[in-house]
Design a protein around this nucleic acid. Structure first.
Ligand SMILES: [Zn+2]
Ligand SMILES: [Zn+2]
Ligand SMILES: [Zn+2]
Ligand SMILES: [Zn+2]
Lengths: 162, 162
DNA sequence: ATACTATTGATAATGAATATCAATAAGAGG
DNA sequence: CCTCTTATTGATATTCATTATCAATAGTAT
């Protein structure tokens, strides 16, 4: 199962789940597999529904719990685009996942990814981080950036409404 | 009341509230005043509590409705740092409010503001926006950027836990 | 002042996320 | 492989922020 993904070894997964003796259960393996196979951004509800097909009987609570654990540990990245539902995606560093940001449609909620300008961004943000850390006595662990607006499909409606 | 703030004239406020004949009511004036006087970031609940002192009897529903209207129109800026509660603050362009971003403490939720590097940021983001708009057919209306990590007070506890 | 109707506020309802807890199953040890 | 211990599961109840409902109220035009 998870051994297929050398980005998430069994050892790493055991660390992830429970700081003292986390068990590698069926539901947890299924969740890990899900995010390694299906690329994209999912709400807890979506994970529950899609996963139920392959893993019937899984409970909603387990999905929420496992998502939290994986996000806290760093395997998943948590997003909150302000639509009431939190979304998760495989974090940077996994096979085939590069650091990227999102274009979020305010109308239909569609999410586009981009990874252009990442070198320039890195240079800029590193400089910022260094200064802010010392100036505000703040230990920076990460950043969140996204652009919001309207996707191609929703632009016409927006122009009409305005 | 609101006429005190030439950044939000009565005309502008009437536009804000209801696209056809928005009435300038007591609660609405009170909300506008609140955000012009108290600088900072507030949840709906906080606005309700603090405002209740000066405007007894105001209802929660009205607070939520008015916050949404003001944010949709652009007087307020809406934040969602993923703590379950949405926060609002007076948007850029109001007297004494400059474009800025936030350092959010993952432990205690404290929010620090910074407006350093805004010229460089503007240059960088403008370039990005132009490219992304055409490349992804996306109409960009704004961006959201924040750094998360640990404030001075919470850094020790974090190091201990890790 | 009168009438018309947008708005209010008390309250019910929604819905995402979390807590509860008996039943289950992972893993250790024999 | 079997047994025991206990972390984890999943059905369910619960929380809590936000939204919907609707009769009463209050802006505003005449
Ligand atoms: Zn769209
Ligand atoms: Zn993504
Ligand atoms: Zn803190
Ligand atoms: Zn701010």
């Amino acid at each position: 199962m998870c051994e297929k993904f050398n980005c998430c070894t069994e050892k790493r997964l055991r660390e992830c789940f429970g700081h003292a003796g986390g068990r590698l259960t069926g539901p947890r393996r299924a969740m890990v597999d899900f995010f390694h196979m299906e690329k994209g951004h999912f709400t807890a509800e979506e994970v529950f529904e899609k996963l139920s097909e392959k893993y019937p009987g899984i409970g909603v609570a387990t999905v929420y719990r496992t998502l939290s654990a994986m996000a806290d540990f760093g395997i998943l990245k948590r997003f909150d685009f302000g639509k009431g539902k939190v979304k998760y995606e495989l974090s940077d560093g996994h096979e085939g996942v590069r650091h990227h940001h999102h274009l979020v449609c305010s109308a239909c909620g569609k999410i586009l990814e981009y990874d252009d300008f990442m070198d320039e961004e890195k240079a800029f943000f590193n400089k910022i981080k260094k200064t802010l850390s010392t100036r505000y006595n703040f230990l920076i662990k990460g950043h969140s950036l996204h652009f919001y607006g309207f996707c191609q499909k929703c632009q016409k409606e927006y122009e009409k409404a305005k």
